[in-house]
Every structure is written in structure tokens, then in C-alpha cells.
Simulated scan of single mutants.
Amino acid sequence: MSTGDENEWTGNPLLKQWLSERQDAFELWAAEAGGGWDFTMESVDRLEALIRSLFSSTGEIEAAQDTAFVQGACWYLGEVFARAHGMEWQQRPGGDPDDLPFVIQAGGTGGIGLDDEGEEEELAVLCPGDEILALFLRDDDNHLRDALEGWFS
């Protein structure tokens, strides 16, 4: 991966704007969501419980997708994984607002990295928006904290 590629994915103007807006709004989001959000993996269970208490279907979340709460929940979920596992935020270059921000293991773009021999290898990727929507598509044993199960111990 070249530095230019990394810049296109991590330096995407839509991503930078979204991250800045989410970070600026976090204090208010956290207060409205009950406070005490500490970016630990344990807090992801609390986030899931809150989402499940406010929504009962994927359709309800999709309808609220652009609200401050859902956008804040997406950012928070991604940020927890970024902080806990050294992942970084990326968004597909091109400016399509339907391309959602995601976190990926550092050193790759779009889910692909290079191993020590220069061969492509799949990297852990988490799209918080998709994971939150999937809460109501999968069974009750599906949990946000398990989104990258098997990637990190």
C-alpha cells in the first residue's frame, strides 16, 4: 500500500468531516445516552442494551440512521474497537455518502493489507453502521462486542 492510497482512505474529506462532527458532538451524545461512556469493550454491552431499548427492528434504525443518536452510536462503537485494537478509521474514496465509515486493522485499505512477504492478506474490518443494523437481523445471541470475534484475543 502506498502512502497515497492510505491518504485517500484515511484522509477522505467525508470521513474527516464525519469524525470531527462526531467527536465534537460526543459529550452531548454521552450525556443524553446516560453518561459514563469510557471507550472500554465492556461499554459496548451497555451500548447494545441502549440500542435494543430504543429500537425494535432494522427498519426503525434505518429510519433514524441520520439522527445524532445513531450516528453517535456508530462512532462510539467504531472508536471502542479502534482504541482497543489499534484500528484506524477509513472510508472508501470517491465521495459517495452511502459509503459508510469503518475501522480496519492499521496498515491496510478496504480490508486488504500486505504480509511480511508482500502478499495480500485479509484484515479485520468493522463497519459500525452495518453492525448496529444487524442487531435485529441476527438472533439474540448476536452481540456488538463479538463483531470481530476470532480476530483479536
Rank of each mutant, 00 (worst) to 15 (best):
M1C: 04
I61V: 11
T10P: 00
A106P: 00
G95L: 08
A31E: 12
A147C: 14
G118C: 03
E79S: 07
Q23R: 14
V44F: 02
W151H: 14
E62D: 14
E131A: 13
G108L: 03
N7A: 15
D96Q: 07
F39I: 04
C74Y: 04
A73L: 02
A73Y: 02
C127R: 09
A147Y: 05
E32D: 15
G4S: 14
D99K: 05
E117F: 07
F26Y: 10
D116K: 13
I61S: 02
P101Y: 07
N7L: 12
R52I: 11
G108R: 15
S153C: 03
E117D: 15
I112S: 13
S43T: 07
D115H: 09
D141Q: 11
A147S: 15
Q65M: 12
E42K: 05
G113K: 07
D130P: 00
I104P: 00
A73F: 01
N142E: 12
E149M: 12
L148I: 10
E6K: 02
R145Q: 14
D146E: 10
L100S: 09
G59E: 15
F26Q: 07
N7C: 08
R92I: 06
E149I: 02
D24M: 02
G4A: 13
A64F: 01
L77K: 03
V103L: 12
A68I: 03
G34D: 02
W89I: 06
T40Y: 05
E27N: 08
R22L: 00
P13C: 13
D115A: 12
T40H: 07
H85G: 04
I112Q: 11
N7E: 14
L123V: 02
G118R: 10
E62P: 00
V125I: 14
C74N: 01
Q17P: 02
G108K: 11
G150D: 10
I104L: 11
P101T: 09
E6Q: 09
L114T: 06
G113F: 08
A106Q: 14
E62N: 08
G36L: 08
T40V: 00
D140H: 06
T3F: 08
E121L: 14
T3Y: 06
Y76S: 02
E32V: 05
E122F: 06
I51T: 14
E88G: 01
I51S: 01
G86W: 03
T58N: 09
D99L: 04
D140E: 15
L133D: 05
